[in-house]
Amino acid sequence: MRNAQLNSTDSKHRRKERIDRGIKARSSDIFALSSWREMLYLAAPRCIPIVGCLMLPLVLGIYWQKVLLSVAVFALLAISWDILEQSGMISLGQALFFGMGAYTAGVFNHYFGWPPFLTIPFASILGGLISTVILLPVLRLRGIYFSMVTLIIPLMLVRIVEATRIFGGTEGLSGITPLPSKWLELYLIVGALLGALFGFRRMMGSDYGLVLKAIRDNDRSVMNAGINVYWFKAQALFIASAIGAFAGAFMTHVYMFVGMPVFALDYSILPIAAAVVGGPGTLAGATLGAFILVPLSEILRGIGGLRIVIYGLFLVVFIVALPEGIFHYIQRKYHQFERWVEV
């Protein structure tokens, strides 16, 4: 497998040649099991993040544990965004899913006294279902309608909560039952992140995922196979919104509060930025992006509002200059080596 890239800036007519590392060629076959080195080559990219994520809560201090918590939440939102993107829906309103989950969990805990172990799964499903039903009509249209509608609905919902004073109005609902222990909190969200990352990565790589991606590329061709495109899009939308709703429901119990901020633009923008910076289309890129951007924004807390300016610029720079994202770059370096050859 050789890919060549012409280097236009170079005057001496060289080109960069990319060649699969021998170990990659060998380990993509059954012989991978023949040596420890090759098994490690295959296993390391999967094991390091798993072990890393499971160890992190133990080594971090209280403050950074909280940061890890929000990293995981934003990574889940970014994964949800990425699944939608791979199915051809560009969401500008992850806050809708997040907020739906958060409010559902909050309402059922506050008014009906359901414990967190009931509200979190219930809110993931109900929140996902409500978001899907709201967005169902837009699925019939191609292009940017989905982006437009997802952008405005959470912003309008904020106004509606404010105006009608339902569910606590501007004050929100406080006194939500917290999760029993800090460790449970941490490992629940980290486990959910790892499960979502590897599970949905596998799903997108299966035949089902192939159909979803095919809908993005050429829905006509998928329709021509007797497949109901809307039904599949609705499924993808439900999966993505349920992930977002789970994150929201979880955060409600962590903050012991739910209110208008759950529909804030932050929950829409940061996941997109994470997915774009990390590299859309792999889910791992989205997670990596969250692990870079969220701690970065904690470090940059001092500059306040300028953070969002930086996210905005990040989005533009990455989408124009490095549209494939960081993860693809790392992946390439891992699997291939490069050399210059004279032309």
Binding site: I90, L92, I144, S147, L151, I269, I272, V276, I308, V309, Y311, G312, L313, F314, L315, V316, I319, V320
Partner: peptide, 11 residues
Amino acid sequence: VIATFGIGLAI
């Protein structure tokens, strides 16, 4: 979509 949105956000 993302580029225009990012520009708007930054401004």
